[in-house]
Nucleic acid binder design. Sequence first.
DNA 1: TAGATTGTTAATCGATTAACAATC
DNA 2: TAGATTGTTAATCGATTAACAATC
Lengths: 215, 215
Amino acid sequence: MSPENVERASGDRLTVGVAARLSQYLRVLTQAKKMGKEGISSQEISEYTNINATQIRRDLSGFGKFGKRGVGYNVDALSGEIRKILRTQGQHNIALFGAGRLGQAVASSSVFADHGFNIAAAFDTDSDKVGQPIDGMQVLDYESLTNVIREKNIIVAVLAVPGEAAQQVADDVVHAGVKIIFNYTDALLHVPADVAVHTTSPAVELLYALYFYLA
Amino acid sequence: MSPENVERASGDRLTVGVAARLSQYLRVLTQAKKMGKEGISSQEISEYTNINATQIRRDLSGFGKFGKRGVGYNVDALSGEIRKILRTQGQHNIALFGAGRLGQAVASSSVFADHGFNIAAAFDTDSDKVGQPIDGMQVLDYESLTNVIREKNIIVAVLAVPGEAAQQVADDVVHAGVKIIFNYTDALLHVPADVAVHTTSPAVELLYALYFYLA
DNA sequence: TAGATTGTTAATCGATTAACAATC
DNA sequence: TAGATTGTTAATCGATTAACAATC
């Protein structure tokens, strides 16, 4: 083991860049496995992530020799190693807010389940939606959020509500103990410093892809 | 103007990093305007994007002096400047594939419209959905995609179809001339080198947020 | 004037890339 | 053996950060 590996193994935090890239590799590996692929090369991962193949090999070799020269990486084995590094081998309960079309789409998708995230509760303020089924669960009354979040030890909230309601929901879930908010709305959310907000912005990614197409 | 500005103004391509960050700033500015904000500081933009405030000022000052010391930036003016830099002032037609819950959620959202993207056509293979209204349009038959894409000069396709159908749709839209694919499915898409694929992966972002929460 | 925030520099750190020996 | 791909080095480039004068 190189000195660098010893440091890493001894529990240093990953840099933001490394953690983000490892997560990307895991997405590709998870999907590759679903598609029945057993092996994969750094070049293939590169094509799916737009991350340089040398960078990928460099990131991985910082934690061990996971590949076979001339062959590539084993999909299952590499997935396991990355999960270990990211310490995300367990299941995590998450809460979904908003049982509209977007909320239903999120609930019925396998993207969260594939990565160990279990939608443990879904909430809506609309009394017509409360009690209705959503992905095998019942939509819960928004008023019950604090108790449910505490009971089920939920630290991740997914916001699929109207933009106007987003800040109120953010305030309420933070008060109940949520530390990570995944924001599907376009609202700019104010949260305490110890809470992380991730906002999806498809249009932003398009803008930027378009620049490189037009230029 | 510094030599660097002269270079930029003369038509050099932005680096990937700069273009990505400018797009982020534009998302915040667009939303800040919606919320009635007239001015904004680099510190505020930093809070919403998780990009360092010095980095933001540095990025912007490479193109001109857009701010006022002691005051900050004017939201409208700065939006305009960034749009100029990204050359995305016009309207762009995009095509939506899949009129299920996710497709409907995408169509009824304002995220694309806010940034000048006009959903000019929506397609589905399900004959029950074809002809039905979606966000003021009619869902079109999937078979008509090639003609519609060429007629409306569409270079961006948004995929909200089942994962199993994604590669076929990608092949078809590429054949019709699409250059940018926004992939909401979990499929790993094979496309020619001149086509850009952007895959949204909420679970990946959660994984990585969770790492920093757990560590 | 006092407070705030930009624009800019300089130093450091991490990402990117090409190249290639090692080895499957 | 021949071909392929990893693991690793070294050089370069861009991102990050602290610091602070300029100035609103």
